[in-house]
C-alpha cells in the first residue's frame, strides 16, 4: 500500500508534483500514467525517500519508507535510470546490492533466473541492451522480496517478448497480494496491464479510476459502413438507441448497433455493403481527453493545431 497525501515537489518556480493525493492498493496492478515530464519519476523518488517532498507525505505500508527496518523488503523499485555501473557484471551488481540491503545472497540467483538473465549474469552490464538493462532493473527490484513493487517505465526498450514478460510478471506479483505500481506514458500498454489507473499531467492528478472506466470514457464503439445506397440503409437502422451520422454521401457512422446486426439488416434489404468495420475508441484519445493540454513537451505544430 502506498499512500500519498498532498504530495508536492517544487523545483524553483516549477511544480513538478502538485498536491498529489492517491492511494495505491495491494493486490492489483496500478498504472501511473502521464506524459513525459508529468512528475511520475519524481513521485516515485519521493516514495523511496530519495527526494524530499516540498510538502505532503508519502507513506509505504503506513509509514515513511525510511522508517522501515527492512526497506528492501518493503519496496522494490526500478527507477528510470539504468542504475548499474557499466563495468560491473549483473551478478556482482545484485550481490553487492543484496549485501548492502541485508538480503540473503541466495536471492540473487532466484531473481537472475526470474529475469531470464542467468546466461548473461557474469557479463559486464556495459554491453547490455536497453531491454537487458530493464530486466536487470526488475531483478534488482525483486531482490528483497518486497511488499510493494514500483517500476518506472518498465517496458521501455523491451522487445515484444519482454513486454509480455513484464505483463505476466506484474499480474503475478499483484495476484500474490503485492502492491504493484507501474509508470508509463504508453496508454495502450497500461490498458492491458493495469487494473487501475492514476493519471497525472503537469504534476497534478487528472484521474484515479479503474481501467475499465477509463476506457469507457474514451467514447463508444461505432461501426463504419460504406454502401452505394447509404441513404436507404440509414432509414432502416435508426432507432431509439441508435444514432447514425454521415459525413460522406456513401458512408455512415453507426453507434448503438453491432456490425453483425447492420450486415444482416443490409442483406435482408438487398443493400450492398462495400465496407463494414467496427471502430474502437482510441485509448490515446481517452488519454488525451483526460490529460488535456497538460503535456509538457509539444511540437509547435501541435500547439498551433490545439
Amino acid at each position: 500500500m502506498i499512500e500519498l497525501h498532498g504530495l508536492t515537489k517544487r523545483y524553483g518556480e516549477k511544480l513538478a508534483v502538485d498536491d498529489l493525493t492517491v492511494t495505491v492498493r495491494p493486490g492489483v496492478v496500478t498504472g501511473f500514467l502521464g506524459p513525459n515530464g508529468a512528475g511520475k519519476s519524481t513521485t516515485m523518488r519521493m516514495v523511496l525517500g530519495l527526494d524530499t517532498p516540498t510538502s505532503g507525505t508519502a507513506l509505504v505500508g503506513g509509514r515513511p519508507y525510511a522508517r522501515h527496518a527492512a526497506p528492501l523488503h518493503e519496496v522494490g523499485a526500478l527507477l528510470e535510470a539504468k542504475g548499474v555501473h557499466p563495468g560491473r557484471t549483473a551478478r556482482n551488481h545484485l550481490r553487492s546490492l543484496a549485501a548492502t540491503g541485508g538480503v540473503a545472497a541466495a536471492r540473487v540467483d532466484v531473481v537472475l533466473e526470474l529475469a531470464g538473465l542467468t546466461a548473461v549474469a557474469d557479463k559486464r552490464v556495459g554491453g547490455f541492451s536497453l531491454g537487458m538493462g530493464q530486466r536487470l532493473g526488475v531483478a534488482a527490484a525483486l531482490l528483497g522480496d518486497p511488499a510493494v513493487v514500483m517500476l518506472d517505465e518498465p517496458v521501455n526498450g523491451l522487445d515484444p517478448d519482454g513486454v509480455l514478460w513484464i505483463r505476466r510478471l506484474t499480474r503475478g506479483l499483484a495476484a500474490e497480494g503485492r502492491t504493484v505500481f507501474l509508470s508509463s506514458h504508453l496508454m495502450s500498454e497500461m490498458a492491458v496491464t493495469a487494473d487501475h489507473l492514476v493519471v497525472v499531467g503537469r504534476g497534478r492528478l487528472q484521474a484515479d479510476l479503474s481501467t475499465a472506466d477509463f476506457i469507457a470514457r474514451a467514447g463508444h464503439e461505432s461501426v463504419d459502413v460504406r454502401s452505394p445506397r447509404a441513404g436507404e440503409l440509414r432509414d432502416l437502422l435508426v432507432g431509439p438507441d441508435v444514432t447514425v451520422t454521415s459525413r460522406e454521401r456513401d458512408r455512415l457512422e453507426v453507434v448503438g448497433l453491432p456490425a453483425e446486426a447492420i450486415g444482416e439488416t443490409a442483406a435482408a434489404a438487398g443493400i450492398p455493403l462495400h465496407q463494414l468495420s467496427t471502430v474502437r475508441p482510441s485509448l490515446e484519445d481517452a488519454f488525451m481527453a483526460v490529460t488535456g493540454d497538460t503535456r509538457e513537451y509539444r511540437t509547435d505544430q501541435e500547439v498551433t493545431a490545439a
Binding site: 523488503h73 556482482n92 546490492l97 549485501a99 526470474l114 522480496d145 510478471l169
Partner: peptide, 29 residues
C-alpha cells in the same frame, strides 16, 4: 511465481557487516 513472498525466515536487515561486504564487492568488482 518463484517470487513468492516469504512469510518465514528473517526479513532483510541493514547491518554493518553487510554494508562492508557490499562496498568491498563494489570496489573489487
Amino acid at each position: 511465481p518463484p517470487t513468492g513472498r516469504t512469510t518465514t525466515g528473517s526479513a532483510p536487515r541493514v547491518t554493518a557487516a553487510g554494508l562492508l561486504r557490499g562496498e568491498w564487492l563494489k570496489l573489487r568488482s
